[in-house]
Each structure stands twice: as structure tokens, then as C-alpha cells.
């Protein structure tokens, strides 16, 4: 009986060893694993708010993807890198990352080129280059014609933003209604909050300050639920502006201070300056 037990244990141990062993990998699999690993590390760094490190990992992932000419991975990581550079307030570097996709669009699927053009439009809007923004936006919309296009709500919001910058408030609000419907249909909370924020801004410009505060409060609720710190700061800033326009200085000061605290936590220089400027105006 004891011998039977010993045999059983030996068999179990051998089986366990066999199951626990690592399957051999080919060179391509190893390369692919390194690529995904770099992407995951970058993603974790983004989650921690360590954007500089995230940019480093995305650069590494892009390098690995380019070394094996994996165009899908090149597009994904070039777009990721551009997003991180934009958040780091490095528009020139973001532009350069996007050029890897846009300089040879025939190599990439249409969705990636459209997304790259959309981000170019966003960068141009941030830089106040309305004409360039219009060109890139048109190119992005051309690459994303169907109603089910994944980035359609984002493009509609960018279009509305462009219209707002040109003073076309009513047209912008019409586009924002489409955007709200599209983002709710897709279950895209991020773009829904963006549309509400822009709608709040449009209402504020039209003098409908009560509606502006209402829309911005809803945007803030969604952004807080999704835990998006930079956008929370944006909502707070817009709310501060709307309350100031309503003459509610105390409420405006409270929002501006909260925006300052959030932007300090995210280390966004631009948002910190905007919060400080708003606070100065309220004083």
C-alpha cells in the first residue's frame, strides 16, 4: 500500500512538472510578447499618471513594431504615443508621432488614418489654427463616414468645438445634439461628457447660464464616474467661468480652487495657469 502511495505521488509530481513547464516560443512569438509587454507597461504608467514613463514605453513598443513592420501595431502605438505627448503638452512631438501614420496612409487601415487625422485636428484647434483644423477634420470625417464609426462622436464634438471657436453657436449646438445621440448609442461616456461640456460652453456664450451650469454639472458627474482627472479639471474651470458670469463669485472661486488642486495633481501646466488666471479674475 505504501509503495502504491509513493508511485502515486511520483506520478503526480511528474504530471505537475509537465503541466508547470513553459511551452517553447518561436522568435516571432517572443518579439510579439515584448511588444505587448511594452504596451501593457505603458498602459499601467498612464493609469498611474506617469505620462513621461508611458511615453518611453510607447516609444519602445513603436520601435519593436517598426522593426517587424507590423503596421497594425505601428498605427496603434503611434496613436497612443501622440495621445500621451498631447497630454504632456508637447504638440510638436505628438504631430511627429501622427506623421508616421499619415505620411503613408496606404499602409494602414482606414480607421487608423482617420483617427490620426482627428487627433491632428484636435492639436490644430488647441493651437488656434482654425484653417488647419478644418482640413484635418474633413479628412478624418472622410475616413469615418458610417454612423457606426467608432470615433464618430469624437469627430462630431471636434466639429462642434471648431464651430464654437468661429462663433457659430447655434450650428455647434445642433452638431452637439447629434454627438450626444451617437455617444449614448455607442455607450461612449467620455464623448457624452465632452458633448455636455461643449453644450454648456455654448449655452454660456448664448447667455443661458442656468442651462450651462446644468450641462456642465452633468459632464462633471460623468467624468468623475469615469475617473478622468484632466477632464474633471476642464469641467470645474468651465463651471467656474459660468458661475462668474452669473455673478456667483463664491461658487466661482470654489470651482476655480478645485480646478487648481486637480490640475496640480495631474501636473498639467496649462490647466494650472488657467485656474490661476480665473482665480485672479475672481479676486
Amino acid at each position: 500500500m505504501r509503495t502504491a502511495y509513493a508511485g502515486l505521488i511520483l506520478g503526480w509530481a511528474l504530471g505537475l512538472g509537465g503541466c508547470g513547464s513553459t511551452p517553447p516560443q518561436t522568435g516571432a512569438e517572443v518579439q510579439r510578447e515584448h511588444l505587448i509587454d511594452a504596451g501593457e507597461r505603458a498602459q499601467r504608467a498612464v493609469g498611474r499618471g506617469d505620462l513621461t514613463r508611458a511615453a518611453g514605453f510607447y516609444r519602445e513598443a513603436l520601435r519593436l513594431a517598426e522593426s517587424i513592420e507590423d503596421f497594425r501595431a505601428i498605427a496603434i502605438h503611434a496613436l497612443n504615443l501622440a495621445a500621451v505627448y498631447q497630454a504632456l503638452e508637447e504638440p510638436a512631438l505628438a504631430d511627429r508621432a501622427l506623421d508616421r501614420v499619415l505620411s503613408a496612409p496606404e499602409r494602414f487601415e482606414r480607421q487608423w488614418s482617420a483617427e490620426a487625422a482627428g487627433r491632428k485636428a484636435m492639436l490644430a484647434l488647441q493651437a488656434g489654427e482654425q484653417d488647419a483644423a478644418a482640413l484635418w477634420l474633413a479628412r478624418a470625417e472622410k475616413g469615418c463616414p458610417a454612423a457606426a464609426c467608432r470615433i464618430r462622436p469624437a469627430l462630431l464634438n471636434l466639429r462642434a468645438q471648431w464651430m464654437l471657436e468661429r462663433g457659430a453657436t447655434d450650428e455647434a449646438r445642433a452638431v452637439l445634439e447629434q454627438s450626444l445621440a451617437a455617444s449614448r448609442a455607442q455607450g461612449n461616456g467620455e464623448e457624452e461628457a465632452n458633448a455636455l461640456r461643449l453644450d454648456g460652453r455654448a449655452a454660456s456664450r448664448a447667455g443661458h447660464l442656468g442651462r450651462a451650469v446644468e450641462q456642465l454639472t452633468r459632464a462633471l458627474e460623468i467624468d468623475k464616474r469615469l475617473a478622468l482627472p484632466r477632464k474633471i479639471a476642464l469641467d470645474l474651470l468651465e463651471l467656474g467661468e459660468a458661475e462668474l458670469a452669473r455673478g456667483e463669485r463664491e461658487a466661482a472661486r470654489d470651482y476655480a480652487r478645485r480646478a487648481l488642486y486637480v490640475s496640480r495633481a495631474t501636473r498639467s501646466r496649462r490647466q494650472q495657469e488657467a485656474s490661476a488666471r480665473l482665480l485672479e479674475r475672481i479676486q
Binding site: E33, I36, D37, G39, E40, Q43, V46, L51, A73, I76, L79, N80, A83, V84, Q86, A87, E109, R110, Q111, W112, A114, E115, G118, R119, M122, C144, A146, A148, C149, R150, I151, P153, A154, L155, N157, L158, Q161, E190, E191, A193, N194, R197, D223, L226, L228, R230, K231, L234
Partner: peptide, 25 residues
């Protein structure tokens, strides 16, 4: 399981990762 994640275009400048879909439309 390991998967490719993408920081999808967010018109508000947010950084949210989504699993990469095979087709965008």
C-alpha cells in the same frame, strides 16, 4: 490574457484605454 490596448481619440483630451477592435466601423 494579454491584449493590445489603445488610447482612443477623446475630443476632451482624456486618456482612456480600450481593447483594440479588429475593425473600427
Amino acid at each position: 490574457p494579454s491584449q493590445e490596448l489603445q488610447l482612443r481619440l477623446d475630443s476632451g483630451g482624456g486618456l482612456t484605454a480600450h481593447p483594440v477592435e479588429n475593425s473600427g466601423r
